[in-house]
Amino acid sequence: MEKAKKRQFGIIATIVLAAVIVLGLMWATATANRNAEHQDTLARVEKLGRIVWGVKADTRLFGLMDTKTGISQGFDIDIARALTVQISKQTGVPMSAEFVPVSTASKMQLLKNTNIDGSVSTMTITPEREKIIDFTNQYFDAGQSILVKKDSGINSIKDMNSSKYTVIVVVGTTAATETAKFAPKAKLLAVQDYATGMQALKSGQGQAMSTDNAILYGFATENPEYHIAGGTFTHGPYGIAFDNNQKPMIKETNAALATIKQNGIYNQLIKKWFSHVPGLDWRSLEAK
């Protein structure tokens, strides 16, 4: 190309590309605004005939990946299945349950992004979260505890209020924020998932791992040299989460939850997953 032609092409191409970028940004902002508007979860799952549940893959008892099937197994998964069946009955629309593994750090984002419809993933109901997403009634009663080595001499979270102690937590959990209230001097180490957290505890990166007692019981069954010290110091029952302002979906799910608690399915699942956990009074978890 001659110089003048090249110059002309360069200028035009620059303008075109710049225009594309500007228009792209404008379109993006417009879509962002439109997406901020309401999308009804119940209408979506009824239309598609499936509910995509976010579940854990690294948490014993609640959601642990079965490497044979590629699907997580645990209390959360069974609850989600039972709820899907019950919601299908209530709405008269047959729906299947699908499962997507989520990490603690990612599940809120996935809900907001509608990658998943709902989340049954050991999620504590908190006022902060309720501002952003919707919760059903509680489906499991839990509270925060610490897991320590049996011979560590640590008897409760209060013993750890010193800068020589490090408490391991997982990014995005309630434990990450609550621990600082009970042991403000202790250092915090936030990791991406529980499997890494437990490994980090075992390799001495911290002296305790803190999260909900129910999750810690799972680790204590597997690692007999560790135990839960000092009971729970917070009370934070789990709820099933949906995106913000999903009243119809919440209503259906709460109704389904009440039904499976009444007809005994819920208690069967509690017995299936928690009756063999040492040190846990599983009967207290049953629906009355």
């Binding site: 890494t196 980090a200 075992k202 390799s203 001495g204 990166q205």
Partner: peptide, 10 residues
Amino acid sequence: TFFFFLVVSK
């Protein structure tokens, strides 16, 4: 990194 963080640090 995982190797150092989880194994060597034992």
